[in-house]
Write a protein that binds this DNA or RNA. Structure first.
Lengths: 222, 222
DNA sequence: TTATTCAGAAAAATCGATTTTAAATAAAAT
DNA sequence: ATTTTATTTAAAATCGATTTTTCTGAATAA
């Protein structure tokens, strides 16, 4: 009946894993907070075993800290780590984008235009901006998708999640958003023109501007 | 009593996690093999819950594939993935080594010499070479340790484990080993001389030679 | 006051058993 | 003979309860 091929899920993700990851990246938990397992069990309406398995996976992924027999905590935030993450993002995402531009085909070009369009049209006020965030992540994923390295994509995804813990602190800030949105379209343009060098330069600048936003929020948040 | 400060375990690792990781990297399980949980439970003499939590962490780490409700499998090996891993190792480890040379202090220099010496003196025939492998991993870890990026170190560690799944296929091969051992000492020398450029070039060559060993083993293994 | 020890309480980790799901085999139908 | 459908078997996932460990705070001693 259904001709659509399901996405080849690299790691089988359960509903509880997805929900926790979303809430951790979205800043629903305070940094440094110790998670009360029984409270989570109630809040997410899930059994102990699936919950613990999700927490273990998130700890291995880097969104939680697991201490000896002392349960799980949300990792602290620090200026040093934000700098680290932003710098690595610049290196890895730039590398991946250049490779994607070298190898991406016509289908990729169409995907890029589609992802950019959906992001532009997204209603930022809907669902606390969650829908916009989803499309934004998907857009950046599409930019680097045909880079040819599954491990590079994996690391980039991980860094994105970490970066977003800083970028999504506090409430919305539509002022800077404007400039970043424009860059999204310029990134697509340079990709379609196969200008790898300029594309990478713009990606560097894009990440740097996002970094400034994230840093400002981090400093306002402390 | 004990004045030694325990290593700041990033992710709390249980005995069962360490054992499984060691055996997965060491090739004790066949690639593509489906893990029989009850058999593991017996073999490692451990309860179901700690075992499952370890398996979940290893899946998030990339040493296992977790399928919908179909348990865990050992990831397949492929030429494409080996190439991917080797290429990324070259980029990331080269980057980290250069940064380490720029920032490493006198303590690092001493650690380097010590790690290289221990590796040289290691008895390769002992414990199926497990002790040599441990020291080899530790040596490479030391090379990049003061690079200043915990996330970069994390990714490099992960890639090392993946790479070793290929490199450690089949029995020992002492012939090529000689040349690689010499490079270890040259890497230390260039690091002590703070010659970042030359050090990175040698690191590139070192990984490339290791890659050739791993590739030969992979092809012999199929 | 400061530090130390010892309950009591709370929480995490683990275990054993149950439920659910997928795989394998056999029977029936096209 | 091949495909389809039941039935059985095996394994994975989940649950509830138990055990173990850590945390808290009061009481004692320095």
């Amino acid at each position: 009946m259904n001709k659509h091929i399901p996405p080849p899920a690299d790691t089988a993700s359960s509903p509880i894993y997805d929900a926790l990851r979303r809430d951790l990246v979205g800043g629903r938990f305070a940094a440094g907070e110790k998670l009360a397992i029984n409270a989570l069990k109630e809040h997410y309406q899930v059994g102990l075993s699936p919950l613990r398995e999700a927490l273990n996976k998130l700890a291995a992924y880097g969104l939680l800290i697991q201490e000896n027999q002392r349960g799980f905590r949300v990792p602290k935030l620090s200026r040093e780590e934000l700098d680290d993450i932003a710098r690595l993002r610049t290196e890895l995402e730039g590398m991946a984008f250049e490779r994607a531009i070298a190898h991406g085909d016509a289908v990729w070009e169409a995907d890029l235009l589609a992802a950019a369009h959906r992001l532009k049209r997204a209603d930022v006020s809907l669902d606390k901006g969650e829908e916009w965030e989803r499309l934004h992540t998907q857009f950046h994923r599409t930019l680097v998708a045909p880079c040819g390295s599954v491990w590079l994509l994996r690391f980039i995804e991980q860094l994105h999640d970490q970066f977003d813990r800083y970028r999504r602190l506090g409430p919305k800030m539509p002022s800077i958003r404007q400039e970043l949105d424009e860059q999204h379209h310029q990134l697509v343009e340079l990709a379609l023109n196969r200008d790898g060098k300029a594309a990478r330069a713009l990606m560097d600048d894009h990440i740097h501007k996002s970094y400034e936003v994230a840093l400002a929020r981090y400093q306002a948040h402390t």
